[in-house]
Design a protein around this nucleic acid. Sequence first.
DNA 1: GACAAATAGTTGCGTTTGCAAATATTGTAA
DNA 2: TTACAATATTTGCAAACGCAACTATTTGTC
Lengths: 177, 177
Amino acid sequence: MYRLSTSFPYLLNRVGVRMGELFARRIASFGVTLPMYRVMAALWESGDQRLSDLSTVTTTEISTLSRLIGEMKRKGLVTRSRLADNGRTVAINLTAKGKSLVEELMPIAIHFEEVAISNFSASDIARLKVVFQDIYDSLGTIEPEIAATKASAKSNAKSKRKITPSRPRPKPRTKDT
Amino acid sequence: MYRLSTSFPYLLNRVGVRMGELFARRIASFGVTLPMYRVMAALWESGDQRLSDLSTVTTTEISTLSRLIGEMKRKGLVTRSRLADNGRTVAINLTAKGKSLVEELMPIAIHFEEVAISNFSASDIARLKVVFQDIYDSLGTIEPEIAATKASAKSNAKSKRKITPSRPRPKPRTKDT
DNA sequence: GACAAATAGTTGCGTTTGCAAATATTGTAA
DNA sequence: TTACAATATTTGCAAACGCAACTATTTGTC
């Protein structure tokens, strides 16, 4: 018999979300949100990434990320520059300020990790990490039309969104980079 | 050396969030969001719950839940009634409509669960569920002042929120139940 | 080369969410 | 019984988010 409270997706999602929340609260006093931390940590790990790469790594919507990078740039944490050889894409990098900030936060992240895994053996944790990666990868096989972000919207017959078909909008100016 | 992309919290959060997103898209065509599904599934499992109980089970903020229950009541999915012996608390229950809807969705949830766990043995999964529960419980030991939702706000010295100290507000009327 | 399709990122807009204040009810102590 | 603290829920407000439309650039294709 099915029970929400013992189902695998529920238990997994719950602990993941809760862990994110607690960490987010912990770093809030640094003026950093969880998505910001992820961006900085991803850039620290391997800098010079495109927006769409960061979107994949941080599992953040690309539109959300675009605004987030704008805010982080205003804060002086990252740079954003158009590539010379491809004017569509944009390269994001850590500034010195961003680097020193993320290096301040990483010990906190490590502390969270230690607490979370403290009840388990090193080999268990190593195996768990593989499990998480495998499950993440296998999620793509759940009905591809759902997994592919774009397609699902079309098949959603009951969308409550009211679309204004072609109202003229003020021309947006790309103001920096 | 620390790396975001191999850290336990990152991998765990990522697969949990992604799984929730995919399921949410799948059930969107039923007009149901993930928090709504959780509420209905929790009530199906054991009905007649208070708002704060539901908040715990569904890991949804109580304020968010209050509004959500209001919406679900408008949709005819749940009932909300003040208890006779304690006028502060409300009891939430599934309506027949809500019950039949969640029973329509549960096979989809089961399908998701099967795909997610398909690469692993039954005993692995059983152990994983225990691990998730254990980790979730142990999260409370990470700096209690963070884990306790209320207290953290007070200790957050750099809150950017601008608080209007005592601007008069229109008196809200509790309109139903 | 001209033009359609594809790719990358940005922005408008409505919805959801989190926090803190407000409200309502109950418990407790003088 | 009055007053004050505690508990449970609701609401105002602003920030964050998701989707789709839009702009800008590059890549075919004829």
